[in-house]
Amino acid sequence: MKRWFRQHVDAVYERLLSREIAGAPTHVAVIQDGNRRYARQNGGDAHDGHRAGAETTERVLEWCQDIGVEELTLYTFSTENFERADEENEALFDLLCDKLYEFADADRVHNNDVCIRVIGETEMLPDRVRDAVDYAEGKTQCYDQFVLNIALAYGGRSRLLEATRGVARDVESGALDPDEIDVETIERRLYDQPVRDVDLIIRTGGAERTSNFLPWHANGNEAAVFFCTPYWPEFSKADFLRGIRTYEHRAESWRRTRARRALALLGAVSETELTEAQSIVNRFRDSLPTGERPHEDDIDATAVRESDDASGTDGDGLDSSSRTAD
């Protein structure tokens, strides 16, 4: 009875959250933490936890597609994970191989045009895992409706370090002018295929840190972050939707802040900056609380007043001494 009641409450909450979601982030990145603790909690070994976590991964992929997410990145195995016991890692590598082959042949992957890509130091992985990676990427490389990035042997800082070294080598050889270095210069060297900026990071398992995960694409984009306590195998659709809601609130807060800053600047900027500030206020005006929203006529009046102050006229073509302005 208690379990039925809990499931009923969860279903109602899930429907409520679904109605609250107005949009979806383009790129969600997930740190799948807690597989081993889940296994210990349930009397199993690490492999049992990883296998249960793989089932959650499949569900999350479906949830992302249902709400319109276009790219999902999973932090599956870090470079630090090589320090774990060989027995545990070998069992995990076997599971990764099984799932990569399974995903590559799954109808739901091909029917939904899912492109599978692996990012990380793949040369560090066993041959059998690299073979599975090549198979999955080769079978889905022509798809472009949804991108599933699997981070294996991944370390965010090591990727940035390699990209920086590549830029330095090109500058030293004369192939690259230092003045031509821009954001795209670094991004082209991070991964073989472009990765979108991350809009939302989700981490399960209770820890509140992003663990060196996609620093260029997440921190640089000021991604929203959702930390939750369930272990990865316990992660539910309600948890997922709470994460999406966090992203929406973060985006709304960003728009509101931009509108407030632009509104404050309207009375203290040059004519060129005034035009830009007006544009921002007009775009994000509805993000402000009702009491803070300026009327459109007020915004225009402020613009006219600032323009007049800058030119020395009173708005009727006369300067401050009542002479016709040149």
Score class of each variant (00 low, 15 high):
residue 197 D to H: 09
residue 148 L to M: 11
residue 206 G to N: 08
residue 199 D to N: 11
residue 137 E to P: 08
residue 150 I to N: 06
residue 221 N to S: 13
residue 168 A to F: 14
residue 131 D to R: 10
residue 139 K to F: 01
residue 227 F to Q: 10
residue 201 I to R: 03
residue 132 A to G: 03
residue 228 C to I: 10
residue 124 M to L: 13
residue 199 D to I: 04
residue 170 D to P: 12
residue 141 Q to T: 10
residue 126 P to A: 00
residue 209 R to P: 04
residue 132 A to Q: 03
residue 191 Y to C: 02
residue 162 E to K: 13
residue 179 D to L: 15
residue 201 I to A: 04
residue 207 A to M: 08
residue 144 D to Y: 09
residue 219 N to A: 15
residue 238 A to L: 09
residue 186 I to C: 05
residue 234 E to G: 12
residue 187 E to C: 03
residue 198 V to K: 01
residue 148 L to F: 12
residue 149 N to D: 08
residue 184 E to H: 07
residue 134 D to H: 03
residue 168 A to R: 13
residue 218 A to Y: 09
residue 192 D to R: 05
residue 120 G to L: 07
residue 231 Y to H: 13
residue 137 E to T: 02
residue 204 T to Q: 04
residue 138 G to E: 06
residue 121 E to N: 12
residue 144 D to P: 02
residue 229 T to K: 15
residue 209 R to V: 03
residue 132 A to H: 02
residue 232 W to F: 12
residue 159 R to K: 12
residue 164 T to V: 15
residue 119 I to S: 01
residue 174 G to F: 13
residue 146 F to K: 07
residue 169 R to I: 15
residue 124 M to K: 08
residue 171 V to D: 15
residue 123 E to L: 01
residue 163 A to P: 10
residue 166 G to P: 07
residue 186 I to S: 05
residue 197 D to S: 11
residue 199 D to S: 04
residue 130 R to M: 03
residue 155 G to Y: 02
residue 218 A to N: 02
residue 144 D to V: 04
residue 204 T to W: 02
residue 238 A to R: 14
residue 204 T to C: 07
residue 153 A to K: 01
residue 222 E to Y: 13
residue 168 A to N: 08
residue 204 T to S: 14
residue 163 A to F: 03
residue 200 L to R: 01
residue 175 A to Q: 14
residue 178 P to T: 14
residue 212 N to S: 09
residue 146 F to C: 09
residue 132 A to F: 04
residue 146 F to A: 09
residue 237 K to I: 01
residue 168 A to I: 14
residue 188 R to G: 01
residue 148 L to K: 07
residue 183 V to Y: 11
residue 182 D to Q: 11
residue 217 H to N: 10
residue 161 L to I: 12
residue 217 H to V: 00
residue 224 A to N: 11
residue 229 T to C: 12
residue 201 I to D: 05
residue 125 L to T: 01
residue 214 L to Q: 00
residue 130 R to A: 04
residue 140 T to E: 00
residue 150 I to Y: 05
residue 150 I to A: 08
residue 171 V to I: 15
residue 170 D to K: 15
residue 171 V to Y: 15
residue 222 E to H: 13
residue 221 N to L: 03
residue 188 R to W: 01
residue 164 T to F: 14
residue 162 E to M: 12
residue 180 E to L: 14
residue 148 L to Q: 06
residue 223 A to L: 09
residue 164 T to G: 12
residue 175 A to S: 13
residue 144 D to M: 05
residue 171 V to W: 15
residue 221 N to M: 11
residue 186 I to T: 08
residue 176 L to N: 10
residue 121 E to V: 08
residue 139 K to M: 08
residue 134 D to E: 04
residue 147 V to P: 07
residue 210 T to H: 03
residue 193 Q to R: 10
residue 210 T to G: 06
residue 207 A to F: 07
residue 220 G to T: 07
residue 174 G to A: 14
residue 149 N to K: 03
residue 163 A to Y: 02
residue 220 G to S: 05
residue 209 R to L: 02
residue 175 A to H: 11
residue 218 A to S: 13
residue 168 A to E: 13
residue 182 D to K: 11
residue 220 G to K: 06
residue 185 T to H: 11
residue 164 T to A: 15
residue 194 P to I: 00
residue 184 E to K: 06
residue 215 P to S: 05
residue 238 A to K: 13
residue 171 V to Q: 14
residue 135 Y to T: 04
